[in-house]
């Protein structure tokens, strides 16, 4: 029996829509007076439970607004669920959305170190991986160029290259596999396949059902924040389409 790496147990996430829209004291006071402040509960996730085992490629499918990204954020530890709990066993590497961790004014070299630090690696480690990252991203000529001058493809290549330079236990992928040209995409896919062979667990969100069918082993279907179905990727995708 393979071990469970991610355990999602009765997770619910509520947002307070009214409070979220108050950005200034004036609005806040106005709403407080009107008594509208506290009650407009929006349930983004309702009682979600599932286990992910080591080596599984786990897909999340559902329409826009079904709560997929919210669930990913909870698993990544960025959001705390309102009720329920998530236990994660192992290192989580989120494939940071293109360029989110970059500082546009810094050069590629500086950004690699900054990004590595954000992901929790040491300076020594980053220095040893530096060449590999640059090689994979094919940006040798642009090492000392501020990344604000990069094209979107270069941005994405650098981001992908940093995020996948080490084998994490769990990789979180939120609709970012479509980076760069077809040649680089092939390279990305190869790298991910490599990781799969080495036993990485992947959680993936995508609207691309064909890809999900091909890639995933298990899937969960979310609808309006509730779990509609859970099972093997083939079944779920067939039901979903």
């Amino acid at each position: 029996m393979t071990e469970t790496v991610i355990k999602v147990k009765n997770v619910s996430m509520h947002f307070n829509l009214m409070v979220e829209r108050t950005d200034s004291i004036k609005e806040y006071l106005l709403k407080l007076i009107k008594g509208k402040l506290l009650y407009d509960d929006f349930i983004a996730l309702h009682d979600i439970s599932f286990d992910v085992k080591r080596g599984e490629i786990f897909g999340l499918v559902g329409l826009n607004g079904a709560g997929k990204s919210t669930l990913l954020k909870i698993i990544a530890g960025v959001l705390k669920p309102t009720t329920g709990e998530v236990s994660v066993n192992g290192t989580v590497a989120p494939l940071i959305e293109v360029g989110a961790g970059f500082d546009p004014d810094l050069t590629a070299r500086e950004n690699i170190f900054l990004n590595g630090a954000i992901l929790g690696y040491s300076q020594k480690f980053m220095a040893s991986k530096f060449d590999e990252i640059i090689d994979f991203a094919e940006l040798k000529a642009f090492i000392d160029v501020p990344v604000k001058n990069f094209s979107s493809g270069m941005y994405a290549r650098l981001g992908f290259s940093i995020a996948t330079m080490v084998q994490p236990d769990i990789l979180i992928v939120d609709e970012v596999l479509s980076v760069g040209d077809y040649r680089f995409q092939e390279k990305c896919e190869k790298r991910i396949e490599n990781m799969i062979q080495n036993g990485v667990t992947i959680i993936i969100v995508s609207h691309n059902v064909t890809m999900m069918k091909k890639l995933c082993t298990h899937a969960v279907w979310l609808e309006h924040g509730s779990m509609k179905a859970l099972g093997s990727a083939k079944e779920i995708c067939a039901m979903y389409v």
């Binding site: 810094l106 500086e110 900054l114 630090a117 300076q123």
Partner: peptide
């Protein structure tokens, strides 16, 4: 301690950007 490299990098970034 775990994130000291990040703190270092963030500080360096601020200083570099200030005088770039």
């Amino acid at each position: 301690k775990k994130y000291q490299f990040l703190i270092y990098e963030l500080v360096i970034r601020d200083i570099k950007k200030k005088y770039r």
